[in-house]
Write a protein that binds this DNA or RNA. Sequence first.
DNA 1: TAAAGGATAGTGGTCTGACCACTTTATAAT
DNA 2: ATTATAAAGTGGTCAGACCACTATCCTTTA
Lengths: 220, 220
Amino acid sequence: MENSRPSSKRFLDIVSDLRTIIKEEGAVIGDKLPSERVLADRLQVGRSTIREALRSLELLGLIETRRGEGTFLADYKKHQLVEILSTFIMQNPQSFKSVDETRRIHERAAIECISNDPERRTLPVWESFLEKLKGIEPIIREELLQEIVVVSENRLSLKIWFLLKQYSRAPFHETMAEDEKEVASNLLKEMMNGNSQLAVMRYADWLDIVNGERRDEHEC
Amino acid sequence: MENSRPSSKRFLDIVSDLRTIIKEEGAVIGDKLPSERVLADRLQVGRSTIREALRSLELLGLIETRRGEGTFLADYKKHQLVEILSTFIMQNPQSFKSVDETRRIHERAAIECISNDPERRTLPVWESFLEKLKGIEPIIREELLQEIVVVSENRLSLKIWFLLKQYSRAPFHETMAEDEKEVASNLLKEMMNGNSQLAVMRYADWLDIVNGERRDEHEC
DNA sequence: TAAAGGATAGTGGTCTGACCACTTTATAAT
DNA sequence: ATTATAAAGTGGTCAGACCACTATCCTTTA
């Protein structure tokens, strides 16, 4: 009936300790962390345990290691980790719905955010998109969505969106159909006009097209 | 100028190899994976390398290890990836704003979701809350918000919300002021009436009260 | 025969020490 | 002062050894 002070998984404690160290030293992106040997000595564990923790954080993209140089706080702009995840995670049918719904929540919020901001809704990038939508060159759906989420300038929301995108089974990596481009254009126009409510409605229209008509039961 | 067949990070290759093994053996959730020693032998690498890969997958919640028993394909109902990522992103002061914004995004989505669903917007729990808001007994702000997010029935969104709540510096764990209760009541009433737009506006009013008047610059 | 008990093998968890390949830095030779 | 060389530091990997724990087999016992 131990109170599990040592949580039976030392490397998990190390992950936590590393976070503390980073915090205490006020390390910023790009900064060098103590070497594995120093960490092992400081935290009083073997180097292999330190490495298990570091390798975990590396796979998450939180740190970056360069042989011969050291370990550095990573620029968390690389989401390559999720590629590996997506092949493993959730065959659970129920969770796909949550993922898609949550992704849409963030997209909708981004659309509203931009529509309500005179600065961002008049960015030249939207004009460019409108032009491209008039043409016949193929456009990937998520190109537009990504731009929207990026411009909304909520880094956490963006991060979450990128994660969810990888897990989503919605066909947002495919090219847009011709009639679909018009709906997307309408979305953009309403957004640029600052009419967030109509923009969101056009977004809903777009979803209807992409997902076919099987959106009968769930509307959140 | 090697073609990087051995990708300089052996443990990353192992992660990939593990995926292959799991696929080939048709392993399902809960199944036991080969032991670390067997894997090391089969993949012709040291056991420590195998462990670095396994520990990474464990931190991601993809596998589960039980001492003395073995390693198993995890039942990944917990999206703990988001958890870990967020705790790390949180070092940066700028991110607090993101956290609060993102939390509000989920709250707003939940309010809209419930408002648009005749079933959920007429739940007796809302009447109870209205009654309590009329009284003088103290009510914690997040009690109401939590109920809303829970009822919206998006498990992932709920998970994210709980997480963000912890890192938020907004005073949602405090009790509601008297004049504040009226605003909250209005929010509930609009929601119960199915008027999602007005409900969201009342929600914005509420935020204004809670956060004082320093919502000048950011409106997303 | 069936139940209880203990020995044994298997497993993950950890540590140590040893190499290797590579980069940086310090030192020596020019 | 510049260049070449040596040394030190770092991550990457391996092998072997324990430990703590679990499951299993097998003997002992009722």
